[in-house]
Write a protein that binds this DNA or RNA. Structure first.
Lengths: 383, 383
DNA sequence: GTCAAAATCTGTAACGATACAGTAGATTTG
DNA sequence: CAAATCTACTGTATCGTTACAGATTTTGAC
């Protein structure tokens, strides 16, 4: 043991003494002598010289002073480094807990470059926030068990979606990024891949690049939806699809068309609006379609919000759910089920998506290969 | 001018030269001489000695090297400090913009203690995220125009609501905090006031403490709601109120009772559930109340989600909106209006709340007195 | 009992920014 | 014309942490 037991005891009690009185002057010189002759003129004193004031936030220096150890030793002890004695580690951990030590994030960040931040890039447009909100919760659930903080990096639809990504990359604002509204050829993905920056996408891409993602199986959703409508005797089916620019547009279309073929139904065109349109627009387009010749007898909605507008349009055209027409919708909240239980809802779990993406991004930061960080979730029939 | 025009030109062009070749060795000594005799042995070289690599993120050092100025000068020039020459400022700003300089947040934070972070303390419970989501957008809108980042600090209902606040206070994770679900005697408010920490609350308190807040006038909402129901000939009114622990419970109750008196209506007890109960519980309680003796002919809901459950309960009891009963609800999303246009909705703008709170907290950080940072918003009749 | 290896502990320098206390030279003052 | 003042700029120290390169003591081998 490099320190005598006697001095160990003396130093561990310093804190209490210091609060009572300034015994420092009498203790420090003796301390310097105890250090042995290895000190030249330049190093007159130890690192942790002054008693850190008790009401300031404790730092490594505080613990170093209280234990009589060096700052480096304390740092390494708290990291469980192999070159620190077991007893020392125990002692340091105990005192750290007692004084409520938290590593200073700025210090760590400055020294190591690690921000311990995950950035969620969020569109400020009203239409999408309903979806991302449970995602925030899912992400938070995971990050709460880690050192990571979640920071929201917003952008508006009127600006370049690359802007927030560039911002994070250029300023080093985060260790990893989560993006939504993924496109098949997504320039944000290309940029982050090129810079070798950890990220996860909500939705897949089609660029031959391997990166972490979480996606909902929208192909399966649309396929199952067609099946369920056909089972109810519906044959002329209309799809309210996502905007064509987004990746899951194609997935949903593919599943829809495969379903039509496999179950023997036909498609009713409904291409004037998509899920990015306002509810009012969707409602109007739906009403018009329903009043037209050969209206659909089955409808599939790619989101819960869209379904509400479709229901309104259908009813405005004088049709009645379950009697004249059936509907399958992806669900985000429960409201639809309370007010129109006739609508068949398949659940997409955004909270799960948040959890999966947070886990994936952290794993990617820690070096895990992207191939192992791609997950898919499946539609679940509600009730 | 302390630097000759000649050397100014030479140094401003260094960047290009450096990228082409390592001319540093020939330039630096001449540079050192140009500094004059004020340097003793300890200060052999200037601060900005080595050429910062062109692909690293630019720092003050980079700009200092490129301009031939000292790091301090660059720092002060970018802050528009009064002791820097106008021409120098211009030159520094130009180069800073050209190289895409962003101050390193960790550096600033470590040195000044300023985090440039606002923390939004968020409950992870599903019931509330619908409300806080537009608030996130509002906050982001404001912060996007500033240096502040928004970090989400979550807590779950099963843990102490003081935990996240203590965390921020103890770790110095943010310069300011925004909290929701404010209580009349809110321990979080007491704690932050005591520590003199900037914050804003969504909702008022009743502790005789002056602090920034934004609140919706729930008293007015309930009062107006009663009036609207009475105007439709309703007299027996039921209120789905917020949980009694929250501040706005009392506001809403007060407005409700004042409305009853002023407009001559009576209250139908509905105290088995509140807005924190699940939709299923609210629905069941409502149905039971509607099937009981002397049911209400008017209902007021303190939230849009609750209204959906109430509508379901009313209809399950065989009653019909507008015919047997009328309803006024605070609205959060538009769904209710599409599916039950009979319900009268008064809008509470959570996005505005986010904007107001963000502005208030920043102003508080900048030292503005809390008395000037208290705002109220009013119900707006939808359509 | 000597010497090398192993086990523990250590100080210094650096990350990027800013507060502070200067300094050099130009300009004004008496 | 010397002293004081002003202008414009500067280096050093520091925030809290960790990488790195020692330093000291203990242990073990022979």
């Amino acid at each position: 043991m490099p320190l005598s037991h006697e001095s160990y005891i003396r130093r561990a009690n310093l804190w209490g003494l210091l609060q009572a009185n300034a015994v420092l002057a009498t203790l420090r010189p003796e301390y310097g002598k105890a250090m042995g002759g290895g000190m030249d003129e330049k190093h007159k004193s130890r690192q942790a010289t002054l008693p850190p004031s008790p009401n300031e936030r404790p730092t490594l220096k505080t613990i170093a002073f209280m234990t009589g150890l060096g700052i480096t030793t304390v740092s390494r002890a708290l990291k469980d480094a192999p070159d620190i004695g077991a007893e020392t580690k125990e002692r340091v951990r105990l005192i750290a807990a007692q004084v409520g030590y938290h590593p200073n994030r700025a210090g760590v960040r400055l020294r190591t470059g690690k921000t311990n931040v995950i950035s969620l890039i969020l569109s400020l447009e009203e239409e999408f926030i309903g979806l991302t909100s449970p995602m925030v919760v899912g992400i938070s659930e995971i990050l709460a068990t880690t050192q990571y903080h979640l920071v929201i990096t917003p952008y508006s639809a009127r600006s370049d979606p690359l802007d927030p990504v560039r911002y994070v990359l250029d300023t080093g604002a985060a260790d990893g990024v989560i993006i939504s509204r993924t496109e098949p050829k997504d320039p944000r993905v290309a940029l982050m891949m090129q810079r070798n920056f950890p990220f996860g996408t909500h939705g897949r891409t089609e660029m031959g690049l391997v990166h972490p993602y979480h996606d909902f199986d929208n192909e399966r959703f649309a396929y199952d939806a067609v099946r369920m409508l056909v089972e109810r005797g519906r044959r002329r089916i209309m799809l309210l699809h996502p905007p064509p620019s987004l990746s899951y547009h194609m997935h949903m279309r593919t599943g829809f068309e495969r379903g039509l073929r496999d179950f023997g139904a036909t498609s009713v065109p409904f291409n004037t609006v998509d899920l990015d349109n306002s509810l009012a627009d969707i409602r109007a387009a739906c009403e018009e379609a329903m009043r037209g010749p050969d209206p659909a007898d089955g409808v599939i909605s790619g989101s819960g919000g869209g379904a509400v507008a479709l229901v309104a349009g259908i009813e405005a055209a004088g049709l009645k759910l379950a009697r004249d027409i059936d509907m399958v919708s992806k669900q985000s909240n429960d409201f639809l089920q309370w007010l129109r239980p006739e609508v068949i809802t398949l659940r997409e779990d955004f909270r799960l998506a948040g959890r999966e993406l947070a886990k994936a991004v952290i794993a990617r930061i820690e070096g895990q290969p992207a191939t192992e960080l791609q997950t898919l979730s499946f539609p679940v029939l509600q009730n």
